[in-house]
C-alpha cells in the first residue's frame, strides 16, 4: 500500500503544480483566488494521504482544520474584494426586523 500512497501523493503534488501555474499566470484576480482555493483543497487531500503514509492518523485533525481555514480564507478575501471592508455587513445578510 505504501507504493499506492506515494503515487497518490505525487499525483496530488502534480495537480498542485498546475494550480500554482494558474495562480501565477491568472489574468484576473479571481483566477488567482480560484487557484489558491483549488490548491488548498488539494493540500487537504495531501495532508490526509501523508498521515496514512507515515501511519500518523493525527494528521487528519490538521486536514480538517485546513479545510475550514481554506474556506474561511477564500470567503474573507472575496468579501474584501467585494466590499473593500471585512467588518461591513453585507447587504444580503441583514434580516428585516
Amino acid at each position: 500500500m505504501i507504493v499506492i500512497y506515494v503515487i497518490t501523493a505525487l499525483a496530488i503534488i502534480l495537480g498542485m503544480f498546475f494550480a500554482m501555474g494558474r495562480g501565477v499566470s491568472g489574468p484576473t484576480l479571481y483566477d488567482r483566488v480560484l487557484a489558491v482555493n483549488a490548491f488548498g483543497g488539494m493540500t487537504v487531500l495531501m495532508i490526509a494521504v501523508l498521515g496514512f503514509l507515515m501511519s500518523r492518523p493525527d494528521f487528519l485533525d490538521i486536514a480538517l482544520v485546513y479545510a475550514l481555514i481554506n474556506f474561511i480564507g477564500t470567503i474573507a478575501v472575496l468579501k474584501f474584494f467585494e466590499y473593500q471592508d471585512l467588518g461591513k455587513r453585507s447587504s444580503f445578510s441583514e434580516t428585516p426586523k
Binding site: M1, I7, T8, A11, I12, L14, G15, M16, G21
Partner: peptide, 23 residues
C-alpha cells in the same frame, strides 16, 4: 486493498485532470 488502491489511483487521476483543466 485492491478496491482502495483503485479508488486512490482514480482519485489522483481526477485531481491531475482537474489541474490540467485549470491550465
Amino acid at each position: 486493498d485492491i478496491v482502495s488502491a483503485v479508488c486512490l489511483i482514480g482519485g489522483s487521476a481526477f485531481v491531475v485532470i482537474g489541474g490540467i483543466g485549470l491550465i
